[in-house]
């Protein structure tokens, strides 16, 4: 299965500065958290995640075809 991953802002470096990343997965059901861990993105650097445009939990199980956006923390406003 395949997902499309957008790592935003400074998080891009965890995907070799490629945006979007296309990720091929061996299994049919994978928790998003596992992908984040594989890419070594510190959880503390993430503000929130969107899956197909909706704010979502990192424990969401992906089944293929999803567009995932991982947003960095921001300050100040």
């Amino acid at each position: 299965m395949q997902i499309t991953l957008h790592l935003k802002g400074p998080l891009k470096k965890y995907g070799d500065n490629i945006e979007p990343l296309t990720i091929e997965l061996e299994h049919t059901q994978v928790k998003l958290r596992e992908i984040i861990e594989q890419l070594e993105i510190p959880a503390s650097s993430i503000s929130f995640i969107q899956i197909n445009g909706e704010k979502s939990d990192p424990d969401t199980v992906l089944t293929g075809g999803e567009v995932v956006v991982v947003n960095p923390r921001v300050a100040g406003g």
Binding site: G9, P10, K12, P72, R73, A75, G76
Partner: peptide, 15 residues
């Protein structure tokens, strides 16, 4: 660091 470098990579338009 990651917490702050959004300012350099994008700046406030990221919001």
């Amino acid at each position: 660091t990651d917490d702050n470098m959004w300012a350099y990579s994008d700046g406030t338009p990221m919001i």
